[in-house]
Amino acid sequence: MDQADPDRHDPTEAAAFDAAGYWRANLKVVGILLSIWFAVSFGAGILFARPLNAVELPGTGFPLGFWFAQQGSIYTFVVLIFVYVGVMNRLDRRFGVSED
């Protein structure tokens, strides 16, 4: 199995597909996005909701922890999926496995 670093991948070698590199890059993207997923919902919305409730979301009457639990986390989830779509489409093209 080829263990080349994905960042040093040479696009001229698209024919020899770097499966391990693609998979590692994929795991990195998923790992980062899931950390954000966890931080907004389980972090801000649950574990730290009570201390965050002492502060209000600027310009509104929302206690911050409550806002994350009932609004903010959901908005973030939607954004996360579309970011994932964009990043993966670029990754697919870079490694020559795009479906276009």
Partner: peptide, 29 residues
């Protein structure tokens, strides 16, 4: 349900939407 549970109702709001992030990133493709 949320009306009667207040903050505790957040379990349904986050639970029934956050699953789609897992679905999109870990299973669907």
């Amino acid at each position: 349900l949320i009306s009667f549970m207040g903050y505790d109702g957040s379990v349904y709001l986050m639970g029934w939407t956050g699953g789609y992030v897992l679905l999109a990133l870990l299973l669907a493709p």
